[in-house]
């Protein structure tokens, strides 16, 4: 069996094991959808009247932002899952087996991706209820979802690296998420960048989250007139794909090498 085939086969065995846990404790899934629904409602009804967006209804403008933020936070659970496996000795068990060294990570990121698919579905429904619509064609609509989930998958690998680097599940619970607040809020996800001070605006425009959000707005026809300046405004797809590739190229090898060295306790 080739190394890649083995990684995928073993990875699927591990992914099924992770999904069994969700099946046995469905509360996990239910609670992971409550936060995004809450965000949609709070932003749509509380901020919706205070944040001016030119040429587009705020709820339409907001939804791609919330989608990207939600999958980024959803990827954070990868850190918790791996930290838990490490703490409970499961990683030791896996590492003593003749399985692919990438399988535990492939399995975990895959099951977390499927978790994200579910969350995105629930959010889309919530969005439709509050008045969000996709105004383009089915092809571009699907392309948007594919891009969104690919980004979620890449973020999972950053999270995997964090989960294998921290000492306990408790630390993973904050370390896996804390950096996502500045990452997602310092972007065009919730407010147009036009009114930010120059320095912040530059950071926000080059933020991977912004490129993702702008791409989705374009693909789904939710973009307003104001889209920022320079390269990030002109080539959102290029930047979004570039960021995803960069994250994967850096964090897949980093996380795998962490896994190889990981020692419990």
């Amino acid at each position: 069996m080739s190394a890649v085939a083995m990684a995928l086969q073993d990875g699927w065995v591990v992914a099924k094991r992770n999904l069994t846990k969700i099946k046995r404790i469905p509360d996990l899934l239910i609670f992971s959808t409550i936060q995004p629904i809450m965000f949609v409602l709070l932003f749509a009804y509380v901020f919706g009247y205070a944040i001016p967006t030119q040429g587009v209804n705020y709820r339409e403008y907001l939804m791609p932002g919330i989608f990207v933020q939600t999958v980024a936070f959803g990827a954070g659970i990868t850190a918790i899952g791996l930290a838990e496996d490490l703490q409970k000795g499961m990683v030791d068990r896996f590492r003593s087996l003749p399985m692919s060294r990438a399988a535990v990570l492939i399995g975990r990121t895959t099951s977390d991706l499927l978790n994200n698919v579910f969350v995105v579905t629930v959010m889309s429904l919530t969005g439709l209820i509050v008045g969000w619509r996709i105004h383009t064609d089915i092809g571009r609509a699907l392309l948007g979802y594919v891009l969104l989930l690919t980004f979620a998958y890449a973020m999972s690998w950053i999270s995997a690296y964090i989960g294998l680097s921290v000492k306990s599940v408790e630390v993973a619970q904050s370390a896996g998420f804390i950096w996502m607040f500045p990452l997602t809020f310092l972007s065009n996800a919730f407010v147009p960048t036009g009114n930010m001070p120059t320095f912040l605006r530059t950071v926000a425009e080059w933020n991977p989250i912004s490129s993702m959000v702008l791409s989705l707005r374009d693909l789904w026809g939710n973009a307003g007139q104001e889209r920022g300046t320079g390269l990030p405004a002109e080539h959102p797809y290029l930047l979004a794909c570039g960021w995803i590739a960069l994250i994967l190229v850096i964090f897949v090898p980093l996380a795998i090498s962490r896994y190889r060295e990981a020692a419990s306790r």
């Binding site: 046995r24 404790i25 896996f94 399988a103």
Partner: peptide
């Protein structure tokens, strides 16, 4: 794995031994 059954645990290990 405490969320799996006894059988599922052993089957998983068998699968990972290929």
């Amino acid at each position: 794995d405490e969320y799996l059954t006894g059988h599922e645990n052993l089957e998983m290990i068998g699968r990972l031994y290929h």
